Computed example of a mutant assay.
Amino acid sequence: MDTITFENFIKVDLRIGTIISVDDFPEARNPAYQLTIDFGDLGVKKSSAQITTLYNKEDLLNRQIVAVVNFPNKQIANFMSECLVLGAVNGKDVTLLCPENKIKNGSVIS
């Protein structure tokens, strides 16, 4: 495992956001959803997330998540992903990282 410095770690901007819409993403190479996420003062960002094995669209709506918001945009098929939603990977299953309590959208993870 590679190690990083604390200075490198603090460059990663981790924030809390609330999923405000979930759409199917049939053009994706692997099964995925297109998420629209409200990050409060940072605004609304979109993300592609391969989380279809454990979550249905109704369960995701209004769920708070943790995401990296300062990566460059990434083109995925015909969709521009603007942030990276974080989850723990177990085979093909991804379990979202979520706050235990309701947190203000845009709150910083440190």
Rank of each mutant, 00 (worst) to 15 (best):
D2S: 11
D2L: 09
D2G: 09
D2P: 05
T3I: 12
T3D: 08
T3R: 06
I4L: 02
I4H: 07
I4A: 00
T5I: 03
T5L: 02
F6I: 09
F6W: 10
F6Y: 15
E7R: 10
E7K: 14
N8C: 01
N8D: 15
F9G: 05
F9R: 05
I10N: 01
I10C: 02
K11Y: 11
K11C: 03
V12G: 02
V12M: 01
D13Q: 12
D13P: 05
D13E: 09
L14F: 12
L14K: 05
R15E: 00
R15N: 06
I16N: 03
I16A: 05
I16F: 10
I16V: 15
I16T: 07
G17I: 10
G17Y: 10
T18H: 00
T18M: 04
T18G: 00
T18E: 13
I19N: 01
I19F: 10
I19G: 08
I19W: 08
I20Y: 08
I20P: 02
S21D: 14
S21T: 09
S21W: 07
V22M: 07
V22A: 03
V22R: 03
D23C: 04
D23H: 15
D23G: 09
D23N: 14
D23W: 11
D23L: 12
D23A: 09
D24H: 15
D24E: 15
D24V: 13
P26I: 10
P26R: 13
P26V: 04
P26F: 07
P26G: 09
P26E: 04
E27V: 11
E27G: 11
A28Q: 13
A28Y: 12
A28E: 08
R29N: 14
R29M: 13
R29D: 13
R29T: 14
R29V: 13
R29C: 05
R29A: 04
R29K: 15
N30V: 09
N30K: 14
N30A: 11
N30T: 15
P31I: 05
P31K: 14
A32L: 11
A32E: 04
Y33M: 02
Y33K: 05
Y33W: 12
Y33G: 03
Q34V: 11
Q34P: 02
L35K: 06
T36Q: 00
T36C: 00
T36I: 07
T36M: 00
T36F: 03
T36P: 01
T36G: 00
I37S: 01
I37R: 00
D38H: 14
D38Y: 03
D38C: 00
D38G: 01
D38I: 02
F39K: 00
F39H: 10
F39L: 07
F39P: 12
G40N: 03
G40K: 07
D41F: 10
D41G: 01
D41I: 11
L42N: 03
L42I: 00
L42T: 06
L42Y: 15
L42G: 03
G43W: 08
V44E: 04
V44F: 05
V44R: 04
K45Q: 07
K45Y: 09
K45W: 12
K46W: 07
K46I: 00
S48C: 12
A49Q: 09
A49G: 08
Q50E: 15
Q50K: 05
I51H: 13
I51F: 06
T52V: 14
T52Q: 04
T52P: 11
T52L: 06
T53R: 13
T53P: 02
T53L: 04
L54M: 15
L54V: 13
